[in-house]
């Protein structure tokens, strides 16, 4: 699709160049023969050519701006092509608008679902908190009972605090894209090895990190480190004792791929489905599992904000492999 728009742009440029060459060659041929009326024709031809060129430039710029508005996430070097070559713009535009509206509607639905899930999650500890305090105040009690009630209330308040922190982290991850920063992958991986190897060892696991040096991606380094740290932490958490967690970086022109894999129970397809989506689960899960999903969701949002993606595949009773793809910066 990108290729098609590129071709369209190329044609535009060709037309532009053609018009310019025509005007110049016309001038070159005609100037020696120039008489008074001939120079007027020449001037007219030159003005027409200049006007045509200006229109071409303006329409090209306009189309670029349009594609940026409709697909804001796309990098500038590869504007998204939704036009087929030769298709009429008037035909393509309504289709593009409809697609954009559909996307907006889908994201509205998703945020509605998310909001209702959040309110549900909040209602549980708040109900317990309110109930505990209400009961404690309902009748006179000894100080030990008051103390127990207050301790229970504190525990529920802490749950709300943890939830609010996780939500804030998720919201901030959404805005963490920063294409002007350069993140050196080898430094990030070295830091992660330093931090997480003791954590893996505490679970009788190994942590093997490998990859070529000099791989850079356009992202906020601290945020990217956080995203990878969360994924590696998750892989360690679900690894079987005695195994090793592997973190392998590979790079091709334009792309950096980071694989994180573990050996362990793995996930069933239905579990895998909501792995990066907190609250999206049929059965109740523990608070610790919920926190883990929050971290994975934060990870995914940070990576997507940097123009990358996360894929996961898992084989039950074997293990799980995560693949982070990031646009690589050429030095």
């Amino acid at each position: 699709m990108t290729g098609e728009l590129r071709r369209l742009q190329f044609l535009w440029r060709c037309q532009l160049a053609g018009v310019c060459i025509l005007a110049l060659s016309g001038a070159a041929w005609l100037v020696p023969l120039a008489a008074g009326w001939l120079s007027r024709i020449l001037a007219f031809a030159a003005i027409t050519a200049a006007t045509l060129a200006a229109i071409q430039i303006l329409s090209a710029l306009h189309l670029r701006r349009l594609s940026r508005i409709l697909w804001p996430g796309q990098p500038q070097s590869s504007p998204v092509a939704r036009f087929s070559l030769g298709a009429d713009l008037t035909e393509a535009l309504p289709r593009m608008m409809a697609e954009a509206l559909q996307r907006a509607e889908r994201s509205r639905c998703a945020s509605r679902e998310f909001l209702s899930a959040v309110s549900h999650q909040l209602s549980q500890p708040l109900t317990a908190l309110r109930g505990t305090l209400e009961l404690a105040l309902a009748r006179e009690q000894d100080s030990a009972s008051y103390r127990r009630a207050l301790e229970g209330a504190l525990e529920q308040a802490d749950r709300v605090v943890r939830l609010s922190r996780a939500l804030r982290e998720l919201a901030e991850a959404d805005q963490s894209g920063d294409p002007s920063r350069v993140a050196p992958m080898s430094t990030i991986l070295a830091e992660i090895t330093l931090d997480m190897r003791p954590v893996a060892e505490a679970q009788s696991c190994g942590l093997l990190v490998s990859g070529p040096p000099e791989v850079f991606v356009a992202a906020n380094p601290q945020r990217l480190q956080q995203a990878i740290l969360y994924l590696v932490g998750h892989a360690i958490q679900f690894a079987v004792a005695g195994s090793s967690i592997e973190v392998r970086l590979s790079a091709s022109p334009g792309t950096a791929i980071l694989e994180v894999s573990n050996q362990g129970d793995g996930f069933r397809p239905e579990e895998l489905d909501g792995l990066f989506e907190p609250f999206r689960h049929i059965q109740a899960i523990s608070e610790e599992m919920e926190a883990d999903r929050f971290r994975l969701a934060v990870s995914k949002k940070i990576i997507e904000a940097a123009g990358g993606s996360v894929a996961v595949e898992s084989v039950p009773a074997r293990g799980t492999r995560y693949e982070i793809t990031l646009p690589r910066l050429q030095k």
Binding site: R162, R165, A166, E169, D195, M196, P198, V199, A202, Q222, Q226, L229, Y230, G233, A291, R295
Partner: peptide, 18 residues
């Protein structure tokens, strides 16, 4: 660590033990 992530706290516990 110059970080501010809640979930780093288990890393802290492991390091303190070391």
């Amino acid at each position: 660590w110059n970080l501010s992530f809640d979930s780093m706290t288990n890393v802290v516990d492991v390091y303190v033990n070391y």
